[in-house]
Computed example of a mutant assay.
Amino acid sequence: MPSWFQKVRTAIAAAGILLLASCGSGSNTPQAAAQRTEFNIGWSIYAGWMPWPYAQQAGIVKKWADKYGIKINFVQVNDYVESVNQYTAGKLDGVTVTNMDALTIPAAGGKDSSAIVLGDYSDGNDGIMLKNAGSLADIKGRNVNLVEFSVSHYLLARGLESVNLKLADVKTVNTADADIVGAFTSPDVTAAVAWNPQLSEMKKQPGALLAFDSSKIPGEILDLMVVDSATLKANPALGKALAGIWYETLSLMQRDDAQGKAARTAMAKLAGTTLDTFDAQLATTHLYQKPAAAVAAMSAPEFATRMKRVRDFSYSQGLFGPGATSADAIGIAMPGTTLGNAANVKLRFDPTFMQLAADGKL
């Protein structure tokens, strides 16, 4: 029996396929959208995304929104998957999301989305936790609690590969990110996959072993700001403001002085943790601190190679929906190349606004 999460993904993907069929084919150009002055952006708790709500609290969002004559509301959604579902359903104009989930939820559902800020990659912020184990190989035959078909599922598959095991060698148990810490405290749960800040709490459990983490697969789990492509095309001021907000906030939080510490302390509080714990989470987050570095990373040949690996895994798990006949069904546009169907691009890695930040033209 598919989990509720798989059902939601399948329903969204099926709806997207029907939409494409009604239009005759996919499109390489975003649909037209109205010019607007107010936008809603969803976020959920994760170390690499805490600069966004802090920026709203600190007035940085208002500063950049005012510059472009718009208003931006950052909306917290306690459940990560629900935040992406709300974005896919059109209730949000943008959302903080990973590369895989941007592909398998909105893009697979027919929603044309643009990743305009490459914030970071997980460099240990996602991990596989075990109890009563000496190594990852001991996971064989166990139930594994995780957010099914998310990057946690992808990390599990990559970890299993490293010890010559397959997904068929374990049984996954779908668990919301908000519930994963509580689940891991149960004696019955001996294997789980999570991301920070939940991961750091799970490490504190007696006998817990971090058996595999994302530092073993650098650059594969990416954290993004994604916005609706049609909305962005009609309202480029939104992209400019978001880029300005992001890089000003990053510059502030990286400072080794009282102001930098105060910013990180506020972010830690928003995430429900302490400064020391938050700084430890940042240590396993490879932030692209400079816009030029993010543009270079997005434009590098290995970026497409890693996205192909993520895409192929997603298709193998049926996350493109029942109508997808190959991994090429959904087009993924990147600087200099398109992966998959160029006539049906639904996920765009667009460095335009990061480049404007790098050039000092925001």
Results as ranks from 00 to 15, higher is better:
G124T: 00
A15D: 05
P322N: 11
I72F: 02
A243T: 06
M334A: 07
G321K: 00
G336R: 02
K131R: 12
G182R: 07
A304F: 01
M298Q: 13
F313G: 02
S150R: 08
K240G: 10
K203S: 15
L242A: 04
A241S: 04
T88A: 05
K216E: 06
D120W: 07
L20R: 15
I116Y: 01
M202F: 09
N125T: 14
M202C: 11
L167I: 08
L18I: 10
K308I: 10
S114M: 06
Y46C: 11
M100L: 15
V227E: 14
G239Q: 01
L18K: 12
A58I: 05
G59E: 01
M298I: 02
T277V: 14
D93C: 03
K240A: 15
T337R: 04
S135P: 04
I41F: 11
N85I: 14
T231L: 08
W52K: 07
E201I: 07
S25N: 13
G110W: 00
A324P: 04
L146A: 11
E38R: 11
Y154T: 05
Y121C: 06
R36N: 15
G182V: 09
A14H: 08
G244C: 09
V117F: 03
P187K: 09
K269G: 06
T249A: 15
T273I: 07
V81E: 08
Q205F: 08
Q289K: 09
F212V: 00
A234K: 03
L165T: 01
G109S: 02
A293S: 14
L167G: 12
G42N: 08
G42D: 13
A32G: 11
H153E: 14
R9M: 03
E248D: 08
I17A: 15
G94C: 03
A358S: 13
L362I: 15
F313E: 07
A108S: 11
T285Q: 11
Y80P: 08
A294K: 07
K346R: 10
N164I: 07
K63L: 06
N125Y: 04
A115F: 02
P218E: 08
